[in-house]
């Protein structure tokens, strides 16, 4: 019975975990479609899933370049969060809401 918990962890486990995480994040984007802040957080979850995938495959192949790539994803995610939140703050200052439906200036 306890042997199941002592089994080694394979690439498949990490792959399935990151798939589930990705799907939860994507669901978050669609379910919170009017709240920009929630969409940004769901986006972070998706990037986390991608990072887990990169690192797991990097370890599986014995090649550290996957981990290097996950650093760059991390960098871009941090920059994206900073810029996105800055845009959100000035949007809220102007319209007093974070509703995506209010961002229709370009719709004509």
């Amino acid at each position: 019975m306890m042997d199941v918990f002592l089994q080694p962890v394979g690439i498949v486990h990490y792959f399935l975990l990151s798939t589930l995480l990705f799907v939860i994040g994507a669901m978050g984007i669609f379910l919170n479609r009017r709240h920009v802040l929630s969409m940004l957080m769901a986006l972070e979850l998706i990037l986390l899933a991608v990072n887990i995938n990169f690192v797991a495959f990097s370890v599986a192949h014995g090649n550290v370049e996957g981990q290097i790539f996950s650093f760059f994803i991390l960098t871009v995610a941090a920059a994206e969060a900073a810029i996105g939140l800055a845009i959100l703050v000035i949007f809220f200052r102007r319209y007093q809401t974070v509703d995506v439906a209010a961002m229709d200036t370009l719709k004509g």
Partner: peptide, 11 residues
């Protein structure tokens, strides 16, 4: 717990 946290973020 990771998936629990993710569900918490979304819901």
């Amino acid at each position: 717990f990771l998936l629990l946290g993710a569900v918490g973020v979304v819901f």
